[in-house]
Design a protein around this nucleic acid. Structure first.
Lengths: 348, 348
DNA sequence: TCTCGTAATGTAACCGGTTACATTGGCTCC
DNA sequence: GGAGCCAATGTAACCGGTTACATTACGAGA
């Protein structure tokens, strides 16, 4: 491997001059600069970033520690983080703790000296433990999880407010008896969404004991919950699922049962995964703005790295209601505009 | 920041002993080892991986350079890579070249000294340029792109074979006049899929001049192509889109036009994105096995890092046909089993 | 008791850059 | 012609670890 000393020797100068020339530093004669550049070119020298980081005490990269690397949530989050990181010339070092709290601590340790700051999303349980493992010396921002001691800045989405907004929307649409399908037992997102639902329903309809069925965020659990509702002949006219995948399972069972989603029964989800556009009928849901969550967190972290003394606090993003056909009430068939298209021509 | 020298001083030993104790090395007295461990604990010492990497000439991480960080393809790929990397205790350093060939070169340079090897997916154009930028000194594996000079090992999927299989499947199903909607002009995947389609169609039906419409992989372009087909009253009974998103757009337009997808006209895609399950009707497509692509590439790279002399060559993964309702011919309604479910109970 | 061998520990060089400080050399100005 | 100044360049320390080699300490055997 060719080092800066090789380049210096080749150009007949000292390593200091070589370093200066290659970094466009203050004062080097244009002639020597060119000579050094040419030598580097000739030897096809590529600087060793690891060594560079060590002396500069700066790595130009940030670590992203996530509970898993899976699906739409993950890719949207990274997209948002990357947009900001790229704008600031930063690389991304990824770490997956595979849902294991032990992994979390070792992942955070492994990042020491390789990144300038951390974006951490704790798994559901025992996140307090992880927060303590974060060295106070390395800047960090929590994703989707508020530190109760507020020692670590964080960015999250307003699950409770979002669920309230959705519940009010359903009631305004005329749905009155709404069932809620929750996520896994100790999932913070699910708990907050459920709390928002319960509160808003009480405020709008006076219902004090709404029907809540336990799911686990999977499509299958949404389907199962819906079968339960049907089998139990529950007196409901809408189902609010704590995430979209369960809502998809829910719609499937309703369609199989010949119950028209939208007209006969309303269905709503949460997250706005891409699939929500394309189901039949399309799914009413809350857009969780995951990419913006990632971007906001990255920006907060970059600010924190620049001024370690600043205490950026907590940012909460409001999700956005996406009203679609699964809560349309008066159903509009896709066929409505069929005639218009058929005027132009038909397939032979 | 507390260093290993601080720990050594605290424990009253030399840095060498401290290093040995903390790395479970050959010979240190249990007593001194414990003393050093305790000192490290007391000072909450975390080793500086950057410095460690420099001396060990080894970073325990691999770089992943992608044309973009977006959507399902990206997250599946990372999932596959991470599975293998995790099993070998490696971190992932991510880089996005934003479709820009210049970025590609600088991204690869920026990785020098920070990773033990590279997984590179070149953007469509000018990938030859990028391949030359790869220093022969750092092990690299190409994703989804074969190096014609075969200097760099690679992993790809058999787009041509996959398209052939799909085309034969459509013909077997009884579809005879099949139109193809292609991807962006100089996209390698699209070109290979089109070639497979053209060849298989000629072999099975004798058709020498199949109808091909240019799309760009977007949903809108699939819709537009379909409108064109309808407006032109083209004599076709199936549409094979070069990817799933275009097929989704295609199905939407057909549904709007009152043409029943599956029964009246067959539609097929390529990729098997999650949405393909959930469209109505569900979409027949080729599963591109993206996670396996990533995993195979990661494994190949790890082998290459272990034995730099080995030349692992090229691996091609065969995609898998997913026959669904969009090519069902005799359509089966979801309502078929409605009665069964309704026996159990109905919503009040 | 002394020598020797081995295990434990220490010293210092090294990885590949950056940069504070020292040195050199060319120029101006008296 | 010599003092003085400043820009260009060189020397060497340093970042925080690892490890080859040197040194020390200790126990066994004569």
């Amino acid at each position: 491997m060719v080092t800066i000393r090789d380049v210096a020797r080749e150009a007949g100068v000292s390593v200091a001059s070589a370093s200066r020339a290659l970094n466009d530093r203050d004062n080097v004669t244009p002639a020597t600069r060119d000579r050094i550049r040419a030598a580097a070119q000739r030897l096809s020298y590529v600087p060793h970033s690891g060594a560079r980081n060590l002396t500069r005490q700066k790595t130009d990269s940030i670590g992203v520690v996530l509970p898993d690397l899976f699906g739409e949530f993950f890719s949207e989050l990274i997209r948002g983080i990357d947009r900001i990181a790229y704008a600031h010339g930063l690389q991304l070092l990824l770490s997956n703790m595979h849902g294991n709290p032990h992994e979390a601590t070792s992942a955070v340790r492994a990042m020491r000296g390789r990144v300038d700051g951390l974006l951490v999303m704790p798994p559901d349980a025992q996140h307090q433990h992880l927060i303590e493992a974060l060295s106070p010396a390395v800047p960090a921002v929590l994703l989707n999880c508020h530190d109760p001691n507020a020692g670590v800045p964080s960015v999250g989405i307003d699950n409770e407010g979002g669920a309230q907004a959705m519940t009010r929307f359903l009631v305004e649409k005329g749905y009155r008896r709404i069932a809620f399908v929750s996520g896994p037992r100790n999932n913070r997102d699910s708990a907050a969404r459920q709390a928002g639902f319960v509160q808003a329903l009480a405020e709008t309809t006076g219902e004090r004991h709404p029907l809540v069925i336990a799911g686990d965020f999977s499509e299958a659990s949404g389907a199962e919950a819906t079968r339960l509702l049907i089998a139990g002949r529950m007196p409901i006219d809408a189902i609010f699922c704590a995430n979209d995948m369960m809502a998809v399972g829910c719609c499937g069972v309703l369609a199989d049962a010949g119950i028209e989603v939208g007209a006969e029964i309303g269905v709503a989800g949460f997250d706005d995964i891409p699939i929500a556009h394309y189901t039949a009928p399309s799914l009413t849901t809350m857009n969780a703005r995951i990419a913006e969550l990632g971007a906001a967190a990255a920006e907060k972290l970059i600010r924190l790295i620049a001024e370690p003394a600043s205490a950026p606090g907590t940012t909460i993003l409001a999700p956005q209601l996406m009203a679609r056909d699964s809560t349309a009430r008066d159903r509009v068939s896709r066929r409505a505009n069929a005639n218009e298209i058929l005027e132009k021509g038909i397939i032979s």
